[in-house]
Structures are given as structure tokens and as C-alpha cells.
Computed example of a mutant assay.
Amino acid sequence: MLRLPHETLRQFMKDSFIAVGVPEQDADTCAEVLITADLLGIDSHGIGRLKPIYIDRILAGQISPATTIEVIKETPTTAVIDGHNGMGQVIAKHAMELAIQKAKTYGMGMVAVRNSNHYGIAGYYVRMAAAEGMIGITGTNARPSIAPTFGVENMLGTNPLTFGIPTDEAFPFMLDCATSITQRGKIEVYARLNKPLPQGWVISEDGTSKTNPHEVLDDLVKGKAALLPLGGMGEEMGGYKGYGYATVVEILSAALQQGAFLKALSGFENGQKVPYRLGHFFIAINVEAFTDLPSFKKTTGDILRALRASKKAPGCSRIYTAGEKEYEIMQDRLVNGIPIDEEEKKDILSLRDKFKLPYTFPFENI
């Protein structure tokens, strides 16, 4: 794939957000979250989602480009925020900043959010906490995708449960993944590449596996297909565990803040597009409320290094720990740019032309 410099791509995304009414500072935040996904190699949540998940939804009236954040309830260590259907990245960054601020004073902080939108990679917010010497935890509900164990109806979102932990290495421990085997963004990537899905990722209404990514994306919206939870179908391989964790995230993303949940997050009402009304939660734990930060970082690093040095399986040359691959990909992409696939090129040019943005891209004449 052709690559674009990350600075160019970031500025293009910022300008696109500004073009649809997102204030400049907020547009900068949104672009920063998206380019971080691309730099870390999380291609399902970067430039590929600029048009369909954010710009198109703003134009359809599902997301308010100007974000108003209201604190509904607050204590020294907690807060409940209403995002009033604004930009998810802006709301989420504010919420984690507030959790971190509380943790600096009281050792721990937790903020629950309602009436928000897709906030990009969850890993962005836990990395914020890790950079402050804290353990960060976040989760979000999402439009219905996952079927419960022994079911075929998409009820739960992909509901990531994400952790960021500071270490004495060059990168934090970062576990950012859905509670399903895969997530919509990965299926979107397969669709852009016209590549069939692996067996066992998606289940149809009749209980069989679906592998056509274009059909799956359409059927997920229609409720005719569902993602399987971590562990897969049934109980034999532990599918109930992914289902259970997805439910935990759903509860923490809706019940504490009295927000919407399950089918109410579909983005449709009586056949019409409506706001998604997503909920999130953010937790910051100040390490120094328990022990000194250098000792914590070293112990954490020792654990990770021991795991990577353990005996490899036949044919495998390396063991990774969470966040390591992303760090290495980032080192490459900071220098060599972000890979852009054919569908992303079309979206980039479409937005450029629609908003008359002053960009010329090297792939236009290829």
C-alpha cells in the first residue's frame, strides 16, 4: 500500500472535522485520537473511519459537531457526565483528564459518561493515565453486535475493556481489545480488501458461520447476523467468558450514569437515523497511593520481560506482551507513514473535493 506522512493525514482529518462544524480545538483532539490509532497499527479505527463513522454521522444529524459537556453529579473521586451527543473523543478525553485529576488528589478517580458517541480507540485514554504514572481503565458500550452465549441475536456492543499500565520500558502495557472475537472495524478492513472472514467470527440467524464481510456489515445493521464473543460459540471454548465481560462493560457504561443500552444504541428509531447515545467509563488509579512509581514500573517490566523470555512454541521465534507490537509499528510509521488502502483513498478524495480542501495526494494519478 502507498503510505502518507502521519502529519499530513492528521492535518487532513483535522481540516475535515472543521469543515463540518467541529471547533478547531475539538477537531485537533479528534484527529489526534484517529492518527494515534493509525500510528499504533490499529487500522480499524483510524483514517478508515473518518468519513463513515464521524463525518457522515455529523452530516446526518446523528452527532453534534459542537460538544457541550455537563457534569450531572460529582464527588471528590467520581463524576457523571452528559456529553449531549457531542464528539466522543472530546468527551472521553475530558472524562479521563477529570479521572486523572481526582486520582492525583485522592488516589483513585472514576468518571461515567452518557449520551456520547464513538470515541475511537479506547487505548488512547488509558495511555493518558499511564503517561501520568497511573493505571488507566476504560470501557464503552456500542451499537448491537454480539450475540449472548446460546443466542444468535446481536444484543451487546463489541464493548472493549481496556487497560493501560506504566512500565520501566519505552512503552506502557496496553490491552485494548473488544470482548468479541473481532469487531466491526476489523470487518470493515476485510470488506475494503475484499477478503473473506475466518470461519467462526460471525454467526447468522440460523446458527451458521458467515464469511462475506460485505454481507456481514449489512446484516449486522439489519439484526440478521451477530459477532461471537471471545471464546466463540457455546461454552466449550469459553464463549460465556467473553459474553460475561461484554455484559460487565454494558452495565458500567449504562447503569451508573443511567444511559441507553443494548438495542437502544442502534442509531435507528422507527427506521430513521438518530443519535447513538453511547456510554463510557474511565478509571484512573494513582500508583503512588500504593507504592513508589519507580518500583511499580520495574516490577511490571520484570513481569513482562519474563513472559517474553519464556519458552517458545515450536515454529515461533518470539513472544509479545500487550502494547509491544503497537509500539514497534509506531516507530516504523512515524518515519515511513501510514498505509492507505483503495477504499480509504476514495474517501479521502471524496472529502477533499466535497469540502474543497487544499490537498494534493500522491496516489491521485496512480
Score class of each variant (00 low, 15 high):
1 M>N: 04
2 L>I: 11
2 L>C: 11
4 L>Y: 02
5 P>T: 01
13 M>F: 07
13 M>N: 09
18 I>M: 09
18 I>G: 11
18 I>N: 14
18 I>S: 14
20 V>K: 05
20 V>C: 09
20 V>G: 10
27 A>D: 04
30 C>R: 11
33 V>P: 00
34 L>K: 07
40 L>Q: 11
41 G>Y: 09
42 I>K: 14
43 D>Y: 13
43 D>H: 11
44 S>M: 11
50 L>C: 01
52 P>C: 05
54 Y>A: 04
54 Y>R: 04
55 I>S: 07
60 A>E: 14
63 I>M: 13
63 I>V: 13
64 S>Q: 14
65 P>E: 04
67 T>P: 00
68 T>Q: 11
74 E>N: 02
77 T>F: 03
79 A>K: 06
87 M>T: 11
88 G>V: 11
89 Q>T: 08
92 A>T: 04
93 K>D: 06
95 A>W: 03
96 M>A: 02
96 M>E: 01
99 A>P: 00
102 K>H: 08
104 K>R: 15
104 K>L: 12
109 G>N: 02
116 S>H: 06
116 S>R: 00
116 S>P: 03
116 S>V: 03
121 I>Y: 09
129 A>Q: 03
133 G>H: 00
134 M>P: 04
136 G>I: 00
145 S>W: 05
147 A>V: 07
147 A>T: 04
151 G>K: 13
151 G>Y: 10
154 N>V: 13
155 M>E: 09
159 N>F: 01
160 P>M: 01
163 F>I: 02
168 D>M: 05
168 D>P: 13
170 A>T: 14
170 A>D: 15
175 L>A: 15
176 D>M: 07
177 C>P: 00
181 I>G: 05
182 T>R: 04
185 G>S: 06
187 I>G: 07
188 E>P: 10
191 A>W: 05
193 L>C: 07
201 W>R: 00
206 D>I: 12
206 D>T: 12
208 T>D: 04
208 T>V: 02
208 T>G: 05
213 P>H: 03
217 L>Y: 11
218 D>E: 14
219 D>L: 15
223 G>N: 03
225 A>I: 10
225 A>P: 11
229 P>R: 09
230 L>V: 00
235 E>V: 05
235 E>I: 02
235 E>A: 01
236 E>G: 01
238 G>S: 00
238 G>V: 09
240 Y>T: 13
242 G>S: 08
245 Y>H: 12
248 V>D: 06
249 V>I: 00
251 I>R: 13
253 S>Q: 07
261 F>C: 09
264 A>L: 10
264 A>S: 08
278 L>R: 06
278 L>C: 03
287 V>L: 10
289 A>D: 14
290 F>Y: 15
295 S>R: 15
299 T>C: 13
302 D>H: 04
305 R>V: 01
309 A>Q: 09
312 K>Q: 12
312 K>L: 12
319 I>H: 13
319 I>S: 14
321 T>N: 07
324 E>T: 05
327 Y>D: 12
329 I>V: 15
330 M>D: 15
331 Q>K: 12
332 D>A: 14
336 N>F: 08
337 G>Y: 00
338 I>S: 03
338 I>Y: 05
340 I>V: 07
342 E>R: 08
344 E>V: 03
347 D>S: 10
351 L>E: 13
352 R>D: 12
356 K>W: 12
357 L>T: 06
357 L>I: 07
359 Y>A: 03
359 Y>D: 06
359 Y>N: 01
